[in-house]
Amino acid sequence: MKILTCPLNGPRNISEFVYGGEVKDMPDPNTCSDKAWADYVFYHDNLIQIVKEWWLHAPSGYWFIAERHTASDEIIKTYDPSEIYNTRIEFSTQQEERA
């Protein structure tokens, strides 16, 4: 059984977690090109290295970040996303302006 340490709930069986993809910088959806958005959504580094990834602890609905090696599967560390994301992201589109 592989153990993943959740920053909120402590060490748990990895089957309690859902993988959420590489952590990437999101381009501004209101201003970026279609190509830049496609890059963000579909294209991945997918290399052999230590990567930052999103993980969800499903029973508690808690998202966090893990650093993991993609060949040895060693989990280096896990932490709350607020360590990286500490400013509010505005998702609202400029619907009103366009209308």
Binding site: D39, F42, Y43, H44, D45, N46, L47, I48, T70
Partner: peptide, 15 residues
Amino acid sequence: SLLAAKAGFKLPIST
């Protein structure tokens, strides 16, 4: 993805 990276581009692939 490993070889594509050497050729200088990313793929929409996860392994």
